[in-house]
Design a protein around this nucleic acid. Structure first.
Length: 454
DNA sequence: TCTGGGGTCCTAGGACCC
DNA sequence: TCTGGGGTCCTAGGACCC
């Protein structure tokens, strides 16, 4: 049996902890660049604001309906998430942190009334951290997800499901008739793993709700769609196909991409941005203990500016020796940028992606063969050659330099030490993000600590 | 004027190999 | 006239997730 613990309207709830005056009001949290709504309070949803709605299209609601918009404050959300996760873990023995606001908890071996236990954990998270959550329980992860959807919907929209499923819903405790009623009341597109495209195709085929989906022919689903959807159907039928993954998997690629605060035309500005992005991606790479073998850079104009000439291009720089060194990665990224940059466009976005990741401890040395030597003296001699000792010493020194860089930036703040080609902070960096409604980093920064009045 | 970021997995098709 | 069978690897694109 699995539980899924999910923070309600998570980013908005984080903001409300430190600003209780936002309770009861329509609130949205905006994406980077204050571009569009990525989290909405129930009141904002009631105003008809859709997920991903561009801010400039809903801005009028600020005056008309008291809508409050805030810039995304990921330092705050990450810290609140850690606190919520540690309490949610108390529900069972093993936990998989699935996203910033969701975790699966395995309930195998837990005795007693699971729903009652969940209500207690829920109350604790609300009181100790300040985040309202919903908990769904089911025999598979897909059913736990569905139960969570039921718990949330029963709380927010009365009438769809029985009221007592609100906040905590335990599908494993239902009779077959009750379970079928829940599945029948759930649109097929709400099932985890069924997106917009597949939902439409299923509906065209007469499969409208989750109950319909449990009754399809597995072989047909596999043939017409994929093994992925087949797995979803099995899970919906109660057969576990997805295990709990409590060890976070090492990433296979690492990206740092951003839209610019305003469009950028000049190469030197793009060079600044790409330097910064390459360094940030390299930091992430070192944090997970990997080296990269390929650096990809892309630039593109905005598809929303239909009148602008459009351009989008990317290219890869293969590194002869995998590395996590910021300067090497940046040099590679800038070389790619030189190759793909075209003058005369309004660039809206760029990114650096690190591919072909390998564990840092797996060293790879260049073969450095001298072919003529090999032919004259045999392969053994040629392979026996070693790169000069100085090269290894240099590599070691670089590693320590990067370690020191990360430590300094970790302690004194990001950007304390950086590569000069990233440009100096200030108005000169025209490409930096717009964040005009940012709240303080209440829990992760001394200067931003909330004052308490007597 | 103004539209996010970061991932994963699967599949089909082509290149290539024996 | 008539041209096999089986396999791997890589890439691009599509679908999904939050």
């Amino acid at each position: 049996m699995y539980a899924l613990v999910d923070g309600n309207n998570f980013y908005v709830s984080c903001e409300r902890i430190f600003r209780p005056s936002l309770n009861g009001r329509p609130v949205v949290v905006l994406s980077n660049n204050d571009g569009c709504a990525i989290a909405r309070s129930n009141e904002a949803k009631a105003l008809g604001i859709k997920m991903g709605a561009p801010w400039f299209q809903i801005q009028h609601l600020a005056d008309e309906a008291g809508l409050v918009a805030l810039s995304a404050n990921f330092a705050l959300y990450g810290d609140i998430s850690d606190r919520m996760m540690s309490l949610a873990a108390g529900l069972g023995h093993r936990q998989e942190i699935y996203s910033i606001d969701e975790s699966f908890v395995e309930l195998t071996g837990i005795r007693g009334d699971l729903a009652e236990r969940s209500h207690k954990i829920r109350a604790r998270i609300l009181q100790w951290v300040g985040i309202p959550t919903c908990i769904g329980i089911g025999p598979t992860k897909t059913l736990a997800k569905l139960a969570n959807h039921v718990a949330k919907t029963a709380e927010r929209k009365p009438g769809v499901y029985p009221d007592h499923y609100a906040q905590v819903c335990h599908l494993g405790a239902l009779s077959p008739q009750e379970l079928n009623a829940v599945l029948a009341a759930t649109e097929v597109g709400e099932v985890w793993g069924v997106g917009r495209r597949i939902a439409q195709q299923l509906k065209d085929g007469g499969i409208h709700n989750a109950l319909d989906l449990t009754r399809v022919d597995l072989a047909t689903i596999k043939r017409r769609f994929s093994v992925v959807l087949e797995r979803t159907v099995r899970e919906l039928q109660g057969t576990p196909c997805m295990a709990l993954e409590d060890e976070p998997a090492t990433k296979q690629q690492i990206a740092y991409t951003r839209s610019f605060g305003q469009s950028v035309r000049r190469l030197d500005e793009l060079q600044e941005a790409v330097t910064e992005f390459a360094c940030r991606a390299s930091e992430k790479l070192r944090r997970q203990g990997s080296h990269t073998g390929q650096v990809l850079v892309f630039v593109r104009t905005s598809p929303f500016r239909a009148k602008d000439p459009q351009y989008s291009c990317s290219a890869v720089f293969p590194l002869p020796i995998p590395t996590s060194d910021s300067t090497t990665i940046t040099e590679a990224a800038l070389a790619v940028l030189d190759g793909i940059y075209q003058a005369g466009f309004n660039y809206a976005k760029a990114g650096v992606m690190l591919l072909d990741l390998v564990p840092a401890e797996r060293h790879q040395y260049t073969l450095d063969l001298d072919l003529s030597q090999a032919l004259e003296q045999g392969w053994g001699t040629a392979l026996g050659r070693r790169a000069p000792v100085s090269q290894h010493v240099q590599a070691l020194a670089r590693e320590r330099l990067m370690g020191a860089l990360d430590k300094v930036n970790g302690r004194y703040g990001r950007g304390t030490v950086m590569l000069a080609s990233a440009g100096l902070a200030g108005p000169a960096r025209s490409w930096t993000m717009r964040q005009e409604r940012m709240t303080p980093r209440y829990t992760t920064c001394w200067e931003d600590l909330a004052p308490v009045r007597a």
